[in-house]
Structure formats: C-alpha cells, structure tokens
Amino acid sequence: MKTPAIDMKGVWFSYDKTPILKDVTLTLKQGDFLAILGPNGGGKTTLLKLLLGLLKPDRGVIKVLGESPHDAKYRVGYLPQNTDFNTTFPISVMDVAIMGRLSRYRIGKPYSRDDRSQVESALKQAGIWDYRHAPIGSLSGGQRQRVFIARALATDPEILFLDEPTASVDPDFEMGLFELLRELNRKATIVIITHDVGVISRNVKSVACVNRTLIFHEEGKITPEMLDMAYHCPVDLIAHGIPHRVLPTHTEE
C-alpha cells in the first residue's frame, strides 16, 4: 500500500489554554482531493498549519507522506488565507510567484530558466501573466489572490494546500480554477479549505468537517453527523442554494 498523503493520529492543539483541535484523526490517501469545511474559528486553518509544520501539536502524531511535516522531503504548494499583507513591499508579481520555486536544496543558487518557465505557465494558468511586471501592491485583492495561486502552482507540488482559494476571485475564475485543480489532481493530492459547499459536490473526492473535532467522509458527502457537529454547514448550504444531493439520507447509505 502506498504511504498515506496525510496521517494524523490523536492530534490535540490549543492556543494558550484554549483548545482548538481535540483528538483529530485522519488518514488521507495519495491522489485524494479533500475539502475541509467548518464554521469560522472551528480550527480549519489551524489544522492546515499543523499539516504544514507551521504549528506543532500539543499531543498526537502527524505524518505527511510518511514524514513529519516540514521535514518531509517533498514539495508542498501552499496558498495562505490572507494574501493582503506587505503591500508596500517593493516586489513584482513575477518575483512573488517565483517564490514557489524555492526549496531547501537550492539555497544560495539563482533561479534557473526552468524555474522561470514553470512560473510563466503558472501565471498564465492563473490568468495574471499580463501583470507580471506590476508591483504586487498595485493589484486588487482578487488579482493578488491569483498571484498567490500561481505561486502555489509553481511549486509543482505532491500535495497542494489551499486555504479559501475562492475567497475574493470572481465566479468565472473559480470555475477555471477547479478545472485546473482537477487536472492537477491526477498527480497531486489536494487539500482545500472552503466555505463554498457548491464546490464540494462537483469537484472533491472526500470531505472533512472541522469544529474542534474532525469528521471525515471518504466519498465526498456531507453526512448528517457533520451537520450536527457543525451546524454552520447547513446555513451555508441554504445560502448557496445547493441541490440536496450532497446530503445523502440514511437509506442511501
């Protein structure tokens, strides 16, 4: 059997004394496309940061591709939730996106021609190539998010983590983005945090709902337990006018 893409066992995490995640266990196989749902403040982003090695769990074990996060000898792509920082920094769109080509193995060496062509195609896929020379601070929020998506794509990752990739982009781009992600999913595992339940029914293979604890559904369905646990989910469902087929009844199961 292949090493799982993500393997979390009994993971606990708290900020100061406030528990954020309790006893989270999750095994995700390689090639999966996981959506993480849940209310704001439920611990979604914390979960992602644990997987990226940005935070360390109080208890429990986390393995990413069989290794501890951050030490894992692979490349991860990462789109942060907030792309609205350091807007006065003197840096061009191109120079932000090319950060996706950084790695610990090439510290101190300049970017290669190959890096540049990877970034070119990532910027084109994200539809922001025309702005490559623009200072990052001159872009709108939606444009900037495209740049950061391009940066995540340029990593050519084995696992791609996206925190709210559709937060400020227009619906057209959103469709294109998921087409792109489905394509990418042929060779990479994708983990996406989203509020948009509509996305789930059409694109993802599995769903997890996070609100202090985690419920995982491998078939990409939102189960009644998830709704019980995180009652914000159905509110989103109604708000987005999603067909009911994402909600299997007990008889279907």
Partner: peptide
C-alpha cells in the same frame, strides 16, 4: 547576494518561506 532570493522570501512572506523549507 548569495542568499538574495531567500532574504526576499523571508522578508516578504516568512510563513511561506518556512513551508518551502527555507531556514
């Protein structure tokens, strides 16, 4: 000059720099 691109990454987006393995 040697660590130019790493310094940029750290200065602009420390979190991302860490994630991709920059010390």
């Amino acid at each position: 000059v040697i660590f130019y691109k790493e310094f940029i990454a750290m200065s602009y987006d420390e979190e991302f720099a860490f994630v991709v393995g920059i010390p």
